[in-house]
Design a binder for these strands. Structure first.
Lengths: 300, 300
DNA sequence: TGTTTATCATAACCAGAACTTATCAGGCCG
DNA sequence: CGGCCTGATAAGTTCTGGTTATGATAAACA
């Protein structure tokens, strides 16, 4: 049994005439006749009664076409559904974001994306890069916003923007000169706990990668770090984007480094094999715009 | 979109592996690959994500296979239904019967048929031959039990049995000799109204076909005729099969004619083009047996 | 009643779809 | 880095489904 046969049966049942049914089916009469014959043979039952002046459904034919039409409807519906799904980005999209970006960036991203793609069902997840990458590989995430590079050949990575790191000190120290990288090593540096890429990036800036100097304290979020700085416990680095949100509620001062700014590149990654590639590309453009706007001080 | 493609999608979704999916579908891997590719192309959407180590459904693919499987189930169900319908006689069967047979014969026929074909949904209709034939032609009846011949080339007619006509007189006249055909013409003969074939058959026996002799009175049923005879109004003819039922409740006597018995052949007819031909053939055998048993005096 | 017309079935042929075998390409793994 | 697994691609073959032409039969008509 084929869908074509069902369509022919439908047409023939409507028309009650092989010739006309063939016409509306855009085939010739023998083609339709043979398909009907084959179908009836394969079913072992007659669906139509061929009278010389009319073609009539058999008793069973009646119930057959009813069901056949229901099937054809479902098929059509499924095709429509597919077309709609293909046209533009819609449905579920699972995005992962690292914690040192999420709270400062996600609100804007969500806003922009749902403005562009109202039918998009955004699902966010915030965790460390390693876990995000694993979840992408497992197919539990569609894409992630992380610091580049991830150097994973199975993933595509597109850069979005670069953000600098800034120094956060207690407000009382704001008049002192900005310490150099070397000086930082001698100060009590507050960092995120292990696993956060930003920790490694900060350490690498201080040339202390790998080693764990004793004057160092772990915090579980940038907010914690800033609050600790405000309490006079030490200094810390935070990414540019976090400044506006985190430094308002504590007696701290923010300073840029002299000379080469420490920075990191934020980008989007997804499976090279993802069928959403085209849509993800579009999305990355939007996210990029949002990111650049945010960095340009557009701190709505 | 074809059912074949849906089946392949189903298999691939289950197996997560082109090779295995092709195996269970009893085709080679390229065949399946191409069908999937074509389907995805025609939909404009990817259903599967081809990873190097695994084949995974896309977001949309998930909902697609769900619906696809529902469609495949309906199709299978429809095929089963057809097979069941073809196997043995079941479903609606519309039988027409002439009034001079129906009350005496139908109860037995119904009993026998529903014993043989429990799944049969019998629908009976009782009216004159002309109307029955029209309804058969219109497809509103599947078959009819009438007096042969009907001489309609578009219909098949199979003889079932012959039944004699008997004379019904008032009980007081039972001692008189059985009148001849000629004598009948001189008596007050009670007959069914126009349109009943039995009227014509009776008249023809008396060689009075067409003509309307004055000594003649119409009744609308054999029961009426017999009651009229019992009231002494005249005599009548009734078919053999009606004797047991009709002559018990009136002071009448039944006599067979001498010499050539007047009789008629009862048979079944149906459209030559009917797809039920085979089943109707079977049914005619059963009806024939019932009829012969009834005539043999088996008057249960 | 013979002829024409309408209608579905059949025959012969043809194109394209779909399958097969063989081969390639890329990722993974020892 | 070579072998293996897996899916894609290519080339060739089979067969399905389609076409045109024709046949058969019954209804319509003159």
């Amino acid at each position: 049994m084929t869908l074509k046969q069902l369509r022919y049966v439908d047409a023939l049942a409507r028309q009650g005439h092989f010739g006309r049914a063939a016409d509306v089916s855009a085939v010739t009469q023998p083609a339709l006749s043979m398909q009907i014959r084959d179908l009836e043979a394969s079913l072992g039952t007659a669906l139509f009664e061929r009278g010389p002046r009319e073609v009539r459904l058999t008793e069973f034919g009646e119930t057959f076409v009813d069901r056949a039409r229901a099937i054809l409807r479902s098929v059509e519906e499924l095709e429509d559904l597919a077309r709609a799904a293909g046209e533009r980005l819609s449905g579920r999209l699972r995005i992962g974001v690292i914690p040192t970006i999420a709270p400062y960036f996600l609100p804007r991203v969500i806003g922009a994306l749902s403005r562009h793609y109202p039918e998009l069902d955004l699902q966010l997840r915030e965790t460390t890069t390693a876990k995000l990458l694993q979840e992408i590989a497992d197919g539990r995430l569609d894409t992630a916003i992380v610091a580049l590079p991830v150097s994973e050949p199975s993933l595509v990575e597109v850069p979005l923007f670069s953000e600098d790191f800034v120094l956060v000190r207690h407000r009382d120290e704001a008049h002192k000169p900005v310490p150099s990288r070397e000086m930082l090593r001698e100060m009590r540096l507050l960092l995120l706990e292990e696993g956060h890429c930003f920790r490694d990036q900060a350490l690498s800036f201080c040339d202390m990668a790998g080693a764990r100097p004793k004057e160092l304290l772990d915090g579980s979020s940038l907010a914690t770090l800033v609050q600790m700085v405000g309490a006079g416990i030490g200094v810390t680095l935070i990414p540019d984007m976090a400044v506006a949100v985190e430094t308002g509620s504590a007696p701290v001062a923010v300073s840029r480094f002299a000379g080469p700014q420490p920075s990191r590149t934020i980008g989007m990654v997804w499976r090279r094999t993802s069928p959403l590639t085209r849509q993800l590309q579009q999305i990355s453009e939007i996210v990029k715009d949002v990111g650049e706007a945010a960095l340009a001080g557009d701190s709505r």
